[in-house]
Design a protein around this nucleic acid. Structure first.
Lengths: 196, 196
DNA sequence: TAAGTCATGTAAAAAGTTACATGATTCT
DNA sequence: AGAATCATGTAACTTTTTACATGACTTA
């Protein structure tokens, strides 16, 4: 099974969902660390059904088009559980902005600084968004967040990863912008700021 | 042009290289944030030559097979410079371990802790490797590291990103391992450690 | 009435990985 | 003698993105 298959099972282990619902979840939530378009999701659901990992039932609606609601099977849950603790095959990181940084010595410094400031803003916005979710999670599911058996703990765990990732990325972007303008702080200070 | 094309131009802007050399660089160095196999590199070089971004000359060798050494053209340098300051189209992040974390509530907690400890080790090893390179860079090119016109500054910039990334990732893995075993520190302490 | 949302698919193209293919030289 | 390195390619397959396709209902 593909990683996308497990991403779908991970969502269906929490609630029954239609292909359309899954597409929405893949844009937000899970989409922060794995994503897929509906053109990938619908065929994958068909494969998951054929292999016995999910089943579906048609839900008739009057005000909306009818929909197929998918449910994870016992087999699906088993395979998902087994996959979670299996070491992932290391995939190469691909980060275009860092690749740009590798050639930044050739570029117009003012424009480069503008680019990295702009990117820092994007990551800070994403960070603010994560912090909002964190505040909501904390107020609504405070206790469960510390219980590893709760799906809310798992949601919180991925959120923490997102917060750490964006914090580090935004800090690096700011350091880059300052550095290309030769406004870099002395070495030790610079290192501190990029790590927050 | 594809991002891979710019990755290749980024390497050729620093030195003339054969397809084989480029393949090596894509495994280390640039490979830390962009990578490609030789089966992708050779066809891409042909395209870059056709579009006038690179040229090649055959270097005859006696002790090794002859090789084609590629050189970036003025056109190639121009396009590379322009690409560096162009905002990257945001691509979705795909991180399988974080996806696993999203379903960790279903898994055997002891095995999950083992997984995250193992992954923490991998990231700590990568971090140690980066720190070695940093020490070497500092001793060999100390002054140039602060000059944004120097390729060594650009190398150092990407290295800093790698160090920040691995530091954050390893910290999160440790926090995950501790948390699934319910050995998590109180909230504020946990947050501190995951950010290093 | 036009734009947006709900809902599900298929097709074509691009990007990336794995496998196939060859051959000389060098190191163990 | 066999494994590893240097050196360059192609083919098949998988994964992902973009585009094509349709249609009902709802909101502005």
């Amino acid at each position: 099974m593909t990683t996308l298959g497990y991403a779908i099972l991970g969502l269906l282990s929490r609630e029954d969902l239609s292909g359309y619902d899954l597409t929405q979840r893949m844009a937000g939530r899970v989409g922060y660390f794995w994503s897929a378009r509906h053109s990938q999701i619908y065929p994958e659901l068909a494969k998951l059904e054929e292999s016995g990992h999910v089943t579906h039932s048609v839900v008739e609606q009057t005000e909306r088009p009818d929909k197929k609601v998918y449910k994870i099977t016992a087999r699906g849950l088993e395979d998902l559980e087994e996959w979670v603790i299996r070491p992932p095959v290391p995939r190469p990181v691909r980060d275009e902005l860092t690749l740009k940084a590798y050639s930044v010595w050739l570029a117009d410094k003012e424009k480069a600084a503008r680019l990295f400031r702009e990117e820092a803003l994007h990551h800070e916005e994403q960070l603010a968004h994560y912090e909002e979710i964190r505040a909501w999670l904390d107020s609504e599911h405070g206790q469960e967040l510390r219980s590893p058996e709760s799906p809310w703990f798992a949601t919180y765990a991925t959120l923490r990863r997102g917060i750490g990732y964006e914090t580090e990325y935004a800090g690096w972007c700011r350091w880059m912008a300052d550095s290309v303008e030769r406004r870099a702080l002395p070495e030790k200070e610079g290192a501190k700021s990029s790590r927050q």
